[in-house]
Design a protein around this nucleic acid. Structure first.
Lengths: 148, 148
DNA sequence: ACGAATTATCAGTTAAACTGACGATCAGTG
DNA sequence: CACTGATCGTCAGTTTAACTGATAATTCGT
């Protein structure tokens, strides 16, 4: 398909990092969402479960900062998960302004199932790469994101 | 050396590929947009200029498919660039349904300036990586996006 | 010549995120 | 203590981006 469209020397849009990152993300979403659907959650909701289910309980704003979303957006996201019975809001002991978000047992179950499914989707995306190239890709992205 | 970032106990959100891709893209946008601003275009508009300025003239729908945007969205995007005097719509010879999008001389000038700026922004993002790791990252993303 | 498919376009809808404001709570000052 | 300023969560309203469905013009197949 379109192996020779007369596209000669210039690298074109498809070599820009912005394009590659966007489309890699798009492709991952296409692979993962169908697998998340049976669990009754979206990829983003699962990301929240992963965030709040990992380590000590976090406040909403702490979670928002780590995920890179607005604090007002976080309210809506937690609302969704709370309506599904996957998380609980609890007043933080020691600071009653904060609401710690903790997983219900059902939320924990979905989080674990989701983690496995995420692993599968990532494996599908990384299929064209060797195991070590895949790991290099992950490590490189990690460094780039942290700006180190 | 990146020490040990592969097999920690809790994978956490920050090790998911979706998170890494999203935030890498976010960081690139933060680096690039300020550099694009003096040119009077956004990153996406510059992507259009790169697309339509490369190779033979393309129709809007062909461009939309390559860029992964909806065809109705493409109408609005081309409208913006046409209003700025950077591109022209021309009825395609041989198929009067199609509108070929071609760059004006001003559009060509912006495209070239933007290409240089894009190179700078990417260099900033990839700064934490060695030259060969950066090239490996780009190659890996390319393979993954094409699903090959 | 006629029906089906394609291209660009537009209007209306939907979804997502942001802005600004508010009440509740905490920390520090005098 | 009282007062001030800052933080956290929340809500209402706005903006922005993209999608859905419909339409006119054009091309293609038969």
């Amino acid at each position: 398909m379109s192996s020779d469209l007369g596209t000669g020397p210039p690298p074109a849009v498809t070599h820009r990092l912005g394009y590659l990152l966007k489309h890699a993300q798009l492709r991952l979403a296409e692979l993962a969402e169908p697998l998340y659907a049976p669990l009754g959650v979206t990829g983003r909701q699962l990301a929240l479960l992963t965030l709040f289910g990992d380590g000590p309980a976090r406040s909403q704003q702490d979670g928002a900062a780590r995920l890179g979303v607005d604090r007002t957006t976080m309210v809506a996201l937690v609302d969704e998960l709370e309506a599904k019975g996957l998380v609980r809001r609890e007043v933080a002991p020691g600071d009653r302004r904060k609401r710690l978000v903790t997983l219900t047992s059902e939320g924990e179950r979905v989080r674990e199932a989701g983690a496995e499914v995420t692993r599968q989707a990532e494996a599908l995306l990384l299929e064209p790469l060797s195991a070590e190239d895949a790991e290099r890709l992950r490590a490189a992205l990690h460094l780039v994101v942290r700006g180190e």
